[in-house]
Design a protein around this nucleic acid. Structure first.
Lengths: 216, 216
DNA sequence: CTAAAAAAGGGTGAATTTACCCTTGTACAC
DNA sequence: GTGTACAAGGGTAAATTCACCCTTTTTTAG
């Protein structure tokens, strides 16, 4: 079943040291060879657009990249080249990111501390069976499914308000900056306290930071 | 001057994929060879203790590791093997960490998106001249020197108070938890508002998170 | 078109936070 | 021993935050 030719791999990763090293590692496996490397999603996509006939068996896509990160790149792939097989690579196990990558069609998600043996197995598995998920990722998918049922969705204005609330401004000042009556702001606050099960503005700030609504 | 033998390198990094790949890359340079790899500071130090005669020319030390991270490892090295030459490797340019690594004797600090050419140059440079700093790092050292002059130092009790303040507890509740009069807490607050140039508890929370006094 | 949400705004009162100014006791340096 | 620094505690008043209950207007779904 396996072709005589080695499986063609593309690496997309901004860590030059890593991507160049990884290429050596992969080329040391007789089943695989790296045919190309790119340092961010942008240049990779440009390549895909200019080489519509490129036949690649597997893409190793870093998640954290400047210019165009893994999630953005994955979105583009889902839209434009959904048949491409992608394994996401990352150093962190941020739940939100993992979910996003998989939701956008990644066939596997590996942490960079994976052993070369597992890594090789994952590559084979994705190429042959179409996917490879570690326990970590599977567990997360289950957990996510549960979370979704009680999902909180914030409206755009509420998010703007939250960002303002994460400052030393008073509600009155926030109202004026948002061109709304202080009373309306009062309403936003109450509604959020209720939805987020918090009791104070401090709670709101902590929530915002934890959920990356504001960055610190 | 350069010996005929290749310079001996040790890699300490928990990202197996990276460290194993990097070994291949380094071994592809004729001037260097990797003689050992370890996946965290703990096992590396154990090795050093058991092999006091090990002659190694350069250590590549990852900063973010479980079990015993780069900073801890660097501290041990400074105490026990100060003559070892270490280049710190990291994915992020967190100022605080960079400063700590260098303060503890790292001879260089490279980001993992460094190109292999620069990387090779840095290794040679550290072995020959004793150090290699990029502009990023040099700039940071200068900036740090300035910051230090206007450094704010918080007392232990103040830090405990700040942690409590980063919650939905009222000051009264905090006072009771810290077994102090609410008025004393009031004093802490005022003093901190003054020292940190803030006006509200929100400001305190933001400061605490930014300076990692509390983790989110 | 109509009913039901959702958004915006309002009033009042209580609790909490903030500002400013003051006293006491203790420790430590000179 | 005296002065200085500082931790702990206090009083009062003003500003801000929070809770609860209410009306009007605008959107949206059926």
């Amino acid at each position: 079943m396996k072709p005589i030719a080695r499986n063609k791999i593309i690496i997309v990763d901004d860590h030059l040291l890593f991507s160049q090293s990884l290429q050596l590692l992969i080329n040391s496996f007789k089943e695989f060879e790296v045919i190309n490397r790119f340092e961010n999603g942008k240049v990779f996509i440009t390549y895909l657009q200019e080489n519509t006939d490129s036949d690649v068996d597997l893409i190793l896509l870093d998640v954290n990249m400047p210019v165009m990160d893994g999630v953005e790149t994955m979105k583009w792939i889902k839209e434009n080249r959904p048949f491409l097989k992608v394994i996401a690579l990352s150093v962190n196990d941020d739940e939100e990111i993992i979910i996003k990558m998989i939701a956008n069609g990644a066939k596997g998600y590996l942490l960079k501390d994976t052993s070369p043996e597992i890594f090789k197995e994952a590559m084979s598995c994705v190429i042959e069976k179409g996917f490879y998920f570690t326990e970590l990722v599977s567990g997360m998918l289950v957990k996510k499914a549960n979370d979704d049922s009680k999902k909180i969705n914030l409206k755009e204005k509420e998010i703007v308000f939250i960002r303002h609330a994460c400052s030393e401004k008073t509600y009155k000042e926030i109202a004026s900056e948002m061109c709304l009556s202080p009373k309306t702001i009062d309403g936003y606050r109450e509604c959020l306290f209720d939805k987020l099960e918090i009791k104070t503005r401090i709670g709101l700030v902590l929530y915002a930071i934890k959920h990356k609504i504001v960055l610190v």
